[in-house]
Computed example of a mutant assay.
Amino acid sequence: MTTGLTPGAGGGVRPIRLLLVDDDPLVRAGLRILVGGSDDIEVVGEAGDGAQAVTAAEAHWPDVILMDIRMPRVDGLVATRRIRGRPNAPQVIVLTTFDVDEYVLEALRGGAGGFLLKDTPPREILEAVRTVASGAATLSPTAIRRLIDHVADPAAGNRRALARARLAALTGRETEVAVLVGHGRSNAEIAGDLGMGVPTVKGHVSRLLTKLDLNNRVQIALLVHDAELL
């Protein structure tokens, strides 16, 4: 199991700092109770809408935010873009149901590190928080494909052309790495597939993020999907 303890001052470790954002106080209460049973994650704040989420993120410096999508005033999509667009931004996991998949895609393109269904088993919610806090994504290629296939998008042709134009700036090796990221492969798996060291793969991924002006692996995967390279 992934540990949720993160490096702290003086070389020690500290629990993952979690911010809960949902307009339903009962949902927030349930999540707080869930986290209360874990010694490596702590709730540092709550917010009832997107505007409060932006303020709370600045006040509490969370590592991860569990973000609802449908909320009054400012929704989770806008809040995610605002939060993730700032330096040293916390990771965001959006909470959703499958009847709003198009919103999930928009949130992922806005920088969210993954998504959870609201009926996700408690153990998986905690593990997803730990995974995202470590810098990895919570999305599998199957989940990404299910979302994309589920949404009938008339703008898909334009997105494909734009995605391919952006990817044209990559070298051949960088394109190979991007495609494998799109398949949900880990750095170690990519290294094995391409016959290179893990540090080299990490370097390629970092250059991909810089060249493509993206901030996480999920966005690389979505871009590759948009370009229909999988």
Rank of each mutant, 00 (worst) to 15 (best):
V92W: 05
G45D: 07
L214V: 06
A169C: 00
T80I: 13
A137S: 15
G197V: 08
V64I: 09
D49L: 08
L162Y: 00
R17Q: 12
D40N: 09
V100H: 13
N215G: 14
A156E: 12
L34D: 05
F115D: 04
L117E: 12
H60F: 08
A178D: 04
R123E: 15
G48D: 14
L105C: 08
L214S: 04
Q52N: 05
G113I: 09
L139P: 00
E124S: 06
G30M: 15
P15Q: 05
E189A: 13
R130S: 04
P7I: 13
E174S: 01
M1I: 08
R81N: 03
G203Y: 11
D63S: 07
T142G: 10
V54G: 04
G135I: 13
D75I: 07
D40T: 11
R145T: 11
P62M: 11
A227W: 02
V13F: 06
G12H: 08
E42A: 12
L31Y: 04
E189V: 14
A47C: 10
G11Y: 03
V92Y: 05
I69Y: 02
T210C: 01
R217K: 15
L162V: 05
Q52T: 05
V104E: 10
A51Y: 10
V21A: 02
V129T: 04
G195I: 12
H183I: 00
P90N: 14
P62G: 09
L26E: 03
L229Y: 03
V151Q: 03
P90M: 14
P141W: 11
R84W: 05
V177C: 01
G4Q: 06
A47F: 09
D75Y: 00
H204N: 08
V224P: 00
S186Q: 11
D49H: 12
G184R: 10
L167I: 05
D119H: 14
L167S: 01
L194W: 10
E58T: 09
I93W: 07
L162R: 04
G184W: 06
E189G: 13
R28L: 15
P141N: 11
D101S: 14
R146N: 07
H150Y: 01
I190R: 06
E106N: 09
L139R: 00
D213P: 00
V104S: 07
V198I: 13
T6C: 04
G48I: 10
S38T: 09
N88V: 09
T171Q: 02
R185H: 15
T142Y: 04
G182M: 14
K211N: 06
V78R: 12
V198G: 02
L147H: 02
G195A: 11
R109W: 12
E58N: 09
D22G: 06
A128W: 04
I190Y: 02
